[in-house]
Amino acid sequence: MAELLSNQVLWTAVLASFIAQVLKLLIYYAVEREWQWERFVETGGMPSSHAATVSALATGVGITEGWGSAYFAIAAVLAFIVMYDATGIRRAAGMHAQLLNDLVEELQELRKQGPKPEPLKELLGHTYLEVAVGAIIGAMFAWISFLVV
């Protein structure tokens, strides 16, 4: 258990995710002037906490194990897959959900009867900017974490 608790790479990645989620909440408040606490646990939005997490992980592994190590290669490939998925597949799924919600809304207006189904979650993926900012936050946090500690 002590080994797990002292794993700096792991905790750097976890804290990078936490910081990105807090920033997401603060950015939303700055733009909309209202607190939406559920933003803290939602996917999507600025910045990407997934990108921050895997970027901090890969950077931490690179710093501790070496940039030419197989461990860094594994972490870097994982990071690229996660970030690609966030801007591609999950973003497309969110756009599909938005379109389906619009269609359901139009059908409800035409029918004027029956219970309205719960809307699909639309904020699933990220723009390239949201992922880039998340990746920068993660890498910067990892460098700071390993330089300070």
Rank of each mutant, 00 (worst) to 15 (best):
M1N: 03
M1H: 03
M1T: 02
A2V: 14
E3Q: 06
E3N: 04
L5C: 01
S6Q: 13
W11A: 03
A13Y: 07
A13K: 04
L15T: 00
A16C: 05
F18I: 08
F18K: 02
I19Q: 02
A20D: 06
A20P: 03
A20N: 02
K24S: 08
A30G: 13
E34T: 08
Q36L: 03
E38F: 13
R39E: 14
T43R: 11
G45M: 03
S48H: 04
A51R: 03
A51Q: 02
A52G: 04
S55Y: 00
A56Q: 03
A56S: 05
A58P: 10
A58M: 15
V61I: 11
I63N: 06
I63M: 09
E65H: 11
G66I: 01
W67G: 03
S69D: 06
Y71Q: 15
F72L: 15
I74E: 12
A75F: 08
V77L: 14
L78E: 14
I81M: 15
I81A: 15
Y84K: 05
Y84C: 01
D85I: 11
A86N: 10
A86R: 08
A86S: 12
T87Q: 14
I89L: 10
R90H: 00
L99V: 10
L100I: 09
N101A: 09
N101Y: 09
V104Q: 11
E106H: 08
E106Q: 12
E106A: 12
L107R: 12
L110H: 06
K112C: 11
K112F: 09
Q113C: 00
P115M: 11
P117V: 09
E118D: 11
P119Y: 14
P119E: 13
P119H: 15
K121Y: 10
L123F: 06
H126A: 08
H126G: 06
V133I: 02
I137A: 01
I144H: 05
V149E: 13
